[in-house]
Design a protein around this nucleic acid. Structure first.
Ligand SMILES: [Mn+2]
Ligand SMILES: [Mn+2]
Ligand SMILES: [Zn+2]
Ligand SMILES: [Zn+2]
Lengths: 138, 138
DNA sequence: CATTAAATGCACTTCCGTTGCATTCTTTAT
DNA sequence: ATAAAGAATGCAACGGAAGTGCATTTAATG
């Protein structure tokens, strides 16, 4: 049993062939993944299966959903120790307006905000748009 | 000529009856407005007209677009001195998970974030989700 | 009044996410 | 090993919301 299979089973996910492939695919990418990205990479697979795989990964807590403001849902593997299910891993996300890629900046947590009286914060989403390191010529 | 008509003309918007009504509607609301909200309020009007009115308002800089993460675009009148066209009025937005309303917190600017080397910020969107003052019992 | 431009109304499209249900595969119990 | 149960997959269709094309109406101008 491989590392990935263990990882999946440990999180209550049956390690089917498709799921292992998708996990590998996401692990090798350093950017957030859209459903269409996986579709393009696995042309033989059904859109729905891929969709539900992402959903399962998310439900089981090994992937987090990213809303980068493009209107297209992105997903990324959770880092070790990520508590995103508890809305406690509030790192920010960066979306490049040039290459259209979105990345997790896991080291950059969303700063605490003092809200007006009566407002209770439960979750936060911060997306910075601009030019990524690759597009800016680093 | 009313205040509103002046406001519209000053921003290069022909003050038609519909536009004046929509402007009034938005001005009297203290929350961000979705297209469907206006649709419901003006059942006799065409969706497209309302849609394009919002777009015109936005293009001319008297309204700013809000992406609160619900997947439904919201709009709010710009405050005096709002430079949102220049991405320089980066106040945050609050979305209530109870009443589903979104408000501008115009006094709460998005804090400056130090990005990793090579990243260039151009815009930012910060949405806090939680319970609003009305729903929390203030 | 005639001419021109802008705003509106209606129909239709696109995009993405989502669901229902039949089928296939995998696990578990007999 | 076989049968039964449960989960995953494949296929088809739906849904909401944003957006577009074009004909028609309304307003502005001379
Ligand atoms: Mn992330
Ligand atoms: Mn606002
Ligand atoms: Zn880039
Ligand atoms: Zn509320």
């Amino acid at each position: 049993m491989t590392e990935i299979e263990k990882k999946l089973e440990n999180n209550g996910i049956r390690p089917t062939a498709m799921r292992i492939l998708i996990y590998k695919f996401m692990a090798q990418k350093e950017v957030a993944i859209a459903l269409t990205d996986i579709e393009d990479a696995f042309v033989k697979a059904e859109r729905t299966t891929l969709y539900r795989t992402l959903k399962t990964f998310e439900d089981k807590g090994i992937v987090h959903h990213i809303d980068d403001g493009t209107g297209i849902s992105k997903y990324a593997l959770c880092e070790q120790g990520c508590n995103c299910e508890l809305d406690q891993d509030l790192h920010l996300h960066f979306h490049c307006s040039n290459c259209d890629k979105t990345v997790c900046l896991t080291d950059h947590k969303i700063p605490h905000i003092n809200l007006p009286d009566g407002y209770i914060a439960e979750d936060a989403n911060l997306v910075i748009t601009g030019i990524c390191e690759k597009c800016s010529g680093h």
